[in-house]
Design a protein around this nucleic acid. Structure first.
Lengths: 143, 143
DNA sequence: CTGATTGCAAAAATTTTGCAAGCCT
DNA sequence: AGGCTTGCAAAATTTTTGCAATCAG
């Protein structure tokens, strides 16, 4: 999350306020997979008076501006990640473990998709689901 | 969603009940991007007495068995898709339009990731975010 | 039969909203 | 100064839970 994010907010006509800075800082630092409640708690550590509602409103704003993005990875609710660039996760369907990896072949597809669908592509999310080493051979059963 | 899904449920020791069949059928037919409320409504069209709670419980069960998967694509809540195979979406950050596409280079990565991280990979989700043709040049502003 | 599963309604958790006060520009 | 933003608390939504009745195997 470059500091340029602030300029982006300003450029879009939004005011730079302590709550917004706090939320931005939380996502910049902690980065990944935080849900609204966690973001609230950490934002309050920075600026104690921040309220729940403001976190939701800020998250919605940042999502609209394509600065963050909500995703679901088996958690019980939404989790936010930076929207910029790509995200590549390996998610264990059994224990929920998430591993990030770097190499990604998605960029190769951008030009083709742009041409074919007329989308201007800004970022992407690539997730693989399966079983991690620990969970292989240990399926879940009822009872 | 092959009919084999039912065998999978049975094999895992779960009972095959009308509510479960209804939810499975909804996801099999309608397939994509339905939220719990929509799934409930359509399941009730098949088996009128199905209750809200059962849909949630069934969705959780199917998620655990890796038959369906919740995702977030800018909607206000979770949406369910089949977990099998791959899903490839182009999502407009502005209007929320979702376009599915077929070609995907993700399969190429499976072997490498398996070797590197020890995951047995079953499926994947690849989403590109950007602006669709209609939304380009029409950014959102406050006020 | 037996215990998993269901539907209902209440409870809990999560989000959204209304509004006066406060802050950024 | 002007009006976007905020925090609070209440309202609305969405999910989860408790339990007796029911159903699949």
């Amino acid at each position: 999350m470059p500091d340029a994010t602030i300029d982006r907010l300003r450029a879009a006509g939004y005011k730079i306020t302590p709550p917004r800075l706090a939320v931005l800082q939380v996502i910049k630092q902690e980065g990944e997979h935080l849900n609204p409640a966690e973001i609230l708690a950490r934002a309050q550590a920075i600026h104690p008076s921040v309220g729940r509602a403001t976190v939701y409103r800020t998250l919605e704003l940042l999502t609209q501006l394509n600065i963050v993005r909500p995703i679901y990875v088996g958690e019980s609710g939404p989790t936010y990640i930076r929207a910029e660039g790509g995200h590549h996760h390996l998610v264990c369907s059994d224990c929920g473990k998430i591993v990030d990896f770097d190499q990604c072949v998605a960029e190769q597809m951008v030009d083709e998709l742009t041409e074919r669908f007329g989308f201007v592509i800004k970022s992407h999310l690539l997730e693989f689901y399966g079983l991690c080493g620990d969970c292989q051979g240990a399926p879940n059963h009822p009872g």
